[in-house]
Amino acid sequence: MLHNFKLGTKFNLLLVSVFLIGILISGAALAAILNRSAENQVTNKALILIQAMNSVRNYTSTQVNPLLKDRLKTEPEFLAQTVPGYSAREVFENLRSNKEYSDFFYNEATLNPTNRRDLADDYEKGLIERFRSDQNLKELTGFRTFPGGNLYYIARPIAVKSQSCLECHSTPEAAPKSLIATYGRSGGFGWQLNEIVGAQIISVPASEVVNTTRQSLLLVMSAVGGVFAITILLINLMLRQAVIKPLNRMAMVAHDVSVGKLDSEFQQTSHDEIGVLAAAFNRMKLSLSMAMEMLNKQQ
């Protein structure tokens, strides 16, 4: 079927085929690169948030808790503001009122928490166990599935670094009375110094990563498509001017010569392949004219 097409059509089909193959290969590679880039952008933002939450935790441990810990023995209810994890969670929820961070979620998932709100689910327990089994593992990232959609998460281990933490988490007998009155004696005890008891987890809907990748990919592919369209147009103009028009003129002259109009001329001043073909065609026409003249004389 291709032999019925004109030269320009064949050439355009070849270019489009090459473009489509190239765009499929490069698009797949570019999508992977952009997806990784989007993950890195989200991760960098999340890591800044984790550092901020760690600063809140440290402030609570070193400045808030010393001021209020004596009241824990006399207050009827436990002062949760003395707990670093509680302070970090509350500060983060306040931060989420900012539109830029409204899609981020913060959790301090714990295997054996005092507050059942912090109890790790089965997936989070798996992350914590990985941190516990490999003390050199400092961070985990990935996607997890929820009924409302997938989440992209960044998790870091939480370890008992201070002896002061054990005042509330060693045994029920050593814990403040207000803590027992508020949360009971069943959870949050038996912790050991330097033990990994939970994980800091910041997560964001996976659509955040997907949408960022999709927008970047669409922008790049649009630019590539535009450049390709302009390239096709310029190549077609050059092909028409340098190849197709000279060949059409040469075909017209050949037709005239074939019907006896030997005075038809074809002028081609270029020195490229078309020029060489034109020169050979003119020599053939001259030879044919001389042969016809000799034949006429003999007759």
Rank of each mutant, 00 (worst) to 15 (best):
K45T: 06
N282W: 03
Y59H: 13
N248A: 12
V91R: 02
N35D: 11
L127A: 01
L95F: 11
V204R: 00
L262C: 02
V259E: 14
I244V: 09
H169I: 05
V16C: 13
L30P: 01
N35R: 11
Y59L: 09
K99T: 11
F5E: 14
I180F: 06
L7A: 08
R144S: 13
Q135R: 10
M250T: 02
S178T: 03
L288A: 15
N40S: 11
R144M: 06
I21S: 13
V276G: 03
D103F: 08
A28F: 13
L288D: 13
R36N: 15
A155M: 02
I128Q: 07
P76S: 05
S222R: 10
H3S: 14
K6R: 12
T9F: 11
K297W: 08
L219R: 06
N194E: 13
R156T: 09
L20A: 01
I201V: 14
Q268P: 01
A29Q: 12
A278Q: 04
M221K: 05
P84M: 09
D121A: 10
A159E: 13
A175F: 05
L67V: 04
I48M: 03
V42S: 00
P176C: 12
K6Y: 10
W191M: 14
L166G: 01
L288C: 09
D122W: 03
V220A: 15
I232P: 02
E39D: 07
G188F: 00
G126M: 07
K138P: 02
K138Y: 08
P157K: 06
N58Y: 09
H271G: 14
T213S: 06
V83P: 01
T182M: 07
T269D: 13
Q267M: 12
L72I: 03
S102G: 01
V227M: 13
Y86I: 06
R144I: 11
Q41V: 00
A174P: 02
V209Q: 05
F104D: 02
F281K: 09
F281G: 08
A80K: 08
P66N: 06
L234E: 10
L20M: 05
V64I: 15
S61W: 03
W191A: 13
R185K: 15
F5P: 03
N115A: 14
G260E: 11
K73T: 04
N194A: 09
C165H: 00
N194L: 04
F5H: 08
T110H: 08
G85Y: 01
L7W: 07
Q135K: 08
R185Q: 09
I230A: 12
E77L: 07
N4E: 07
I202V: 12
D122I: 10
Q63N: 10
S222G: 14
L24Q: 14
E100F: 09
F266R: 03
G27M: 11
M53N: 05
L127T: 04
N65E: 08
R89M: 12
N115R: 08
E173H: 06
L67K: 09
E273R: 08
V224L: 15
V253E: 00
A229T: 04
A206N: 02
E124A: 12
S264V: 00
I158M: 15
I202C: 00
E129Y: 06
L14D: 01
V224F: 12
N40G: 07
P147R: 03
V243T: 01
G149Q: 07
L218N: 08
K245H: 07
L288M: 14
M250C: 10
E77Y: 08
